[in-house]
Structures are given as structure tokens and as C-alpha cells.
Write a protein that binds this DNA or RNA. Structure first.
Lengths: 123, 123
DNA sequence: CTACGTGTTCGCCTCGCATCGAACAGTCTA
DNA sequence: TAGACTGTTCGATGCGAGGCGAACACGTAG
């Protein structure tokens, strides 16, 4: 029964549901940014123009399914906006709105490139 | 494994191991602050004087074991410093050091009290 | 139409996290 | 010394997050 008739629910090419940063809890925002993959996505997105990058164009070590999930998390955290452009889906970082809701957070994330693994000249 | 009948492992009243904020990765800091319980701890701690609050004096809905775990996480994230004072353990928020490592983050967390789930008197 | 490319959803699996109760080690008090 | 109190560690548990492959839908190119 695992197969046979799938019944075709198929809520597929539905327009992406967005959440405004102002409706996002602090915990949600922090959790969204505490994942390395999502952090990479946000940073790459920040280094590009709005609507320039498609979902599949990011250099992250996960497959399509996981990638799609991460984009959904970023949407739910009010961090990105997505739009369908033909067969592709293009993205935009919500700089202004997110900054207004969580002042300094995005800047902090974009500034801090690496940390914690550095040299430790200490005894 | 590594169990059975250990004679006296008991690394108990060992002095708390601290991690300096400068050795903390951004992901670690964000993950530490993305938990509601830890967020409450940090906020309560921020509202008190240094070394004023003991571990058991916080108003959080978890038992001792979980509480101890959360304090360990906060230590590992460079957010707090602990010191033994008799039978109790007293805490201090590492405001300055953490602020230096992650400018604006602690302030943001302390400023934003609630969000996302609250009433929305707008519209 | 057929084939391909893009991205979402589903089912499944694996980990890690948060939590608890219990046991234990200290400290302070009676 | 006995007992109360504080906090850590252990072991087990429940649950959610993150990962993958497969199937599917939609758009585009041939």
C-alpha cells in the first residue's frame, strides 16, 4: 500500500509562503542562523544582487531536498523572500525588514565570517 | 561502554571550565541563545548584579539536571562565568567579553523581550 | 510530444538535543 | 554525625532537526 494510488495531492508549484520578520520570534531567527548551511546561504545571498540567485545555484554540501528545507526555514524566519521565475525560484535577502526587526543581527552574521576554530595563543 | 563499575569517576566539584567568547563560533553563540530556557537564564542574569544569582535561583520550568546542562551550554558559548561559593555556584553574565566578540548580539537579546507569538496591535 | 532541468514533498533513517529521575559529591547547619 | 541543600553526572527516553533518494509537478528546450 506504500504505493499504488498516490492520490496526487500535489500542492506543488504553490507560491512560496512568506513570513515577515516582524512576525518572527527571536528564538526562531537565532535558530535559523545557527545552522552552518543556512548561514552559508545567507552569506552567499548577501553577496549578490536581489533576485539574482536561484535556489540551486548555492555552494552548499547538501542535496536538493535538504536545500529546499533550508530555504523554507529561512523563509519562516523572515530572512529571505522568494519568487518564481519560470522553472526556477529566485531569492532575495530581506536586509531592511530583518534589520528593522533585529537590529544588528544580520550585520553581525555577515561580518563574522569564521570563528571558534582559529588559533589559540593561550595557555 | 566505559561503564560497569567504575570505582570513583566522580569528577564532581571540579571547578567549572570556561570558554572565552573569543573562542566561540558564531553558530555556537546563536544556538545557545536560540533556546527559550537559556534565553530566560541570560535575561534574568542580566537583570541582576554579578555573582548575585545562584544556579538554583532562576525561574525556569526545568529540573536540576536540565538546568545544569543549560548552564554548561551557556559556559561553552562564552556567555556566562561561574564560581563556586560554598555549596552554591554563582553566576555572572559576560557582558563585556561577549559584546566584544559579538557586538550587539547580547544587547539585541536583552532588548527583545517577546516576539512572534504576542498580540499584534497593528493593522 | 519528449526530454531535461528545477524545486517541492514524501517516506525513511539517523543523530543530537532537551528532559527527567536517580545517584553522588560537596557544603552548610543542627 | 546526621541531615538538608546545591549542583553535577549517568542512563534512558521522546522528539525534532537534518539528511537522503524517489516521485512528482511545472517550466523550458529540443
Amino acid at each position: 500500500m506504500t504505493k499504488g494510488n498516490v492520490a496526487a495531492p500535489a500542492p506543488h508549484r504553490t507560491p512560496p509562503e512568506h513570513v515577515h520578520p516582524r512576525d518572527v520570534a527571536l528564538e526562531t531567527a537565532l535558530a535559523a542562523l545557527s545552522d552552518p548551511v543556512r548561514l552559508a546561504l545567507v552569506r552567499e545571498l548577501a553577496a549578490a544582487e536581489d533576485w539574482e540567485r536561484t535556489c540551486g545555484s548555492f555552494d552548499v554540501p547538501v542535496r536538493k531536498a535538504a536545500l529546499s528545507h533550508h530555504f523554507a526555514v529561512l523563509r519562516s524566519a523572515g530572512l529571505i523572500e522568494q519568487r518564481d521565475a519560470g522553472a526556477k525560484r529566485i531569492n532575495r535577502l530581506r536586509r531592511a525588514e530583518f534589520e528593522e526587526r533585529f537590529p544588528g543581527l544580520l550585520a553581525l552574521v555577515l561580518r563574522q565570517q569564521e570563528a571558534g576554530g582559529g588559533p589559540r595563543p593561550r595557555g
